[in-house]
Amino acid sequence: MARHIYHCPLRWSDMDAFGHVNNAVFVRYLEEARIDFMFRLAPGDGSPSFQGGSVVARHEIDYKRPLVHRHEPVIIESWVTKIGAASLTISYEIKDPGEGGQVYVSASTIVVPFDLAAGRPRRITAEEKAFLQKYVDDGTLGAGAERAAA
């Protein structure tokens, strides 16, 4: 099982009055990682996969500890925990680099592919499903599963 790795810089404007990343900013960090995963890494050269639009149906976020301003980026690991006919669930950890890095946030997002022209959800294509399956970890492999940086 592979995990998508995104290096996310912390910006001064991300901080709140207490000097740590504002809780709402973490949603933007997740968005950056998700877009990087789904669009930049979409399969095939010139493939239309994931580019017809998608909407977020749900976010779940567990804030583990405050993240204070620093110059080093955090790592956002993303992987797929569920693929349905017309939705997928992406899970994330926002953490320090390196094995055993401190986790600041654990989260998941349900994403629904969307046909913007028709104004309605659409099914996941075979090409999209094949791409997503490389990143599936439903929790049954255990903590020792190999992780590949994408």
Rank of each mutant, 00 (worst) to 15 (best):
H7M: 10
C8P: 01
L10V: 00
R11S: 05
S13F: 06
H20T: 04
V21N: 02
N22G: 07
N22R: 08
F26G: 02
V27P: 05
R28A: 07
Y29A: 06
L30R: 01
E31N: 04
E32F: 15
F37I: 03
F37Y: 03
F39C: 09
L41A: 14
A42M: 13
A42K: 09
A42W: 11
D45H: 13
D45I: 07
D45R: 13
D45F: 12
D45N: 11
S47R: 13
S47M: 09
P48S: 11
S49F: 13
G53F: 11
S54Q: 11
V55T: 07
V56N: 05
A57F: 08
A57D: 04
A57P: 03
E60Q: 04
Y63R: 11
K64Q: 09
K64Y: 07
K64W: 08
R65A: 14
H71L: 02
I75V: 13
I76H: 08
E77C: 01
W79N: 00
W79Y: 04
V80I: 15
T81L: 02
I83F: 08
A86F: 10
T89M: 04
Y92N: 07
Y92E: 00
I94H: 05
G98H: 05
G98M: 08
E99V: 15
E99Q: 10
G101Q: 07
V103R: 10
Y104W: 11
V105L: 11
S106K: 10
S106E: 07
T109F: 07
V111F: 11
P113Q: 07
D115K: 14
A118C: 11
A118F: 10
A118N: 10
R120H: 11
R122N: 00
R123I: 04
T125C: 03
A126S: 13
E128Q: 09
E128R: 09
K129E: 14
K129M: 12
A130S: 13
L132P: 03
K134Q: 12
Y135L: 08
V136K: 12
D137T: 00
D138K: 01
D138C: 00
G139L: 00
G139N: 04
G139Q: 01
T140R: 11
L141R: 12
G142L: 08
G144M: 14
E146A: 15
R147I: 08
A148M: 10
A148K: 15
A148S: 14
